[in-house]
Design a protein around this nucleic acid. Structure first.
Lengths: 243, 243
DNA sequence: CCTGCAATGTGTTTCAAGTACATATTCTCC
DNA sequence: GGAGAATATGTACTTGAAACACATTGCAGG
């Protein structure tokens, strides 16, 4: 950004430089019935009639890029203060049929229970990630990229616990990991790896109303959000621009 | 990107939606005197008089986002076909003093020897990454982010060999890694790790004109660009938009 | 010419983490 | 009360990284 002179911002050349729209798209992951879900909306473009697309919106001129993704999430789900991570920006010329639009993709993980009824009246619906095929725009590629990033991060950082209730058993946690990673995990090795990470607190409570032997219940360690990637992200949002 | 209707692209609402300029910024890494360098240019904005900034430009409406970064690199260094990776998009409202500009950051690794004279007449110059302090805009943050990404990738993917001559010794390679990672490495363990990766070909030649015992010379395995992250990147550039 | 120095080349041991696999315990259901 | 199924815990093996030792080669200076 050294070529941009103030002259470039004058109205005269306005159309030369500001012909690109900027949007954000959110890959909102949920979890139900032992499957990873993604929140989609029916596309309102004729070109993609009947197809689904991710939740997104144009970025307003008075909001930060990250803020825009938070706004989309808040407007659509009513949720605030959730994990949201920028993944990649997609900017091919022809990716939007109506004009030049580049989009920055974010993903987040939310607990479906918190907001089950909030968006039923809209055209929103949850879709099993494994069965999603065609999406509008390049949203299939965006979904794939975000899922891949999620898979890379999930064993390193405690980011998936928004998908579970407050109290959960190790079996439930393992089911979740298997849904995200798309592979089966060895029960004993998984438990060891998770316990080693020291993310969990043993609640000394037991599952109830399970058809078999109840397992111990755990919760996420409270002060854990201050460590790992979560801190980086939060800091990222709060730090004012250096310019 | 579901809210964007064709109506939004009409001239009437043009200024509402297209008031954000889009740029790319390239963190171009080089290597000399056992130090990691970054290519900078004197800022031409009054607000940042005397300060340096990264190499960037506004994205043209008829070029892909990735193309724009390649163009910047080509225009500035004359180099083509180099490693270029998108890292992050910075979009804070106030990051550019002249107006709303979001920028997507890329980094690349180039061999300074290939193009030493190409840009002397411009205001371009190499700067030791360790001594860079203040930069124009949020470019210091961009540099830090790209350096961190580079450090994360460098042991996993064979991306640094553009910074070395065709033939190099393991000692030279280790010096490079130490410059990038900012730490000292154990000689013997480093050699084992690198050999294990099977990136190198033993040329059966020796160093010459070195003040001490010459080391063996290696080169990068020729077909290696088809594997690892390089393939992903290349594929990324060639794949047409799914929309 | 020979010897010390400095850097190269190769090896061993130790430790941590992950993988494969086994056994005991607890609760439900019949 | 016993079979079944899931929980809880443990052991052996493998892999990769980290710490560390020693022999080899070429140059430089006496």
């Amino acid at each position: 950004m050294t070529k941009l002179k103030t002259a470039a911002l004058e109205k005269s050349s306005h159309l030369d430089y500001f012909n690109i729209a900027v949007s954000v798209d959110c890959v909102i992951f949920g979890y139900a019935e032992k499957a990873l879900k993604v929140l989609l909306i029916k596309s309102d473009l004729e070109e993609f009639a009947g197809m689904y697309s991710l939740l997104g919106d144009l970025v307003r001129t008075d909001e930060d890029l990250d803020e825009a993704s938070y706004r989309v999430l808040r407007e659509r789900t009513g949720l605030d203060d959730v994990y949201l991570e920028q993944v990649h920006t997609f900017g091919n010329v022809a990716r939007h049929p109506s004009g030049r639009v580049i989009t920055t993709a974010y993903y987040s993980l939310i607990n479906k229970r918190n907001n089950g009824l909030q968006f039923i009246n809209h055209e929103l619906s949850w879709h099993d990630v494994k069965t999603v095929t065609e999406l509008a725009f390049d949203h299939r590629q965006i979904l794939d990229t975000c899922l891949q990033r999620l898979q890379e991060k999930v064993m390193e950082y405690p980011i998936v616990f928004n998908l579970l209730p407050e109290k959960f058993s190790l079996r439930e946690l393992q089911d979740l990991y298997e849904a995200i990673l798309g592979v089966e995990l060895d029960r004993r090795n998984f438990r060891k790896r998770i316990i080693l990470k020291d993310w969990l607190v043993d609640l000394n409570e037991m599952e109830e109303d399970v058809p078999h032997r109840p397992g111990k219940l755990y919760k996420l360690r409270p002060n854990l959000k201050k460590s790992g990637q979560l801190e980086v992200k939060a800091e990222h949002l709060k730090t004012p621009s250096l310019s």
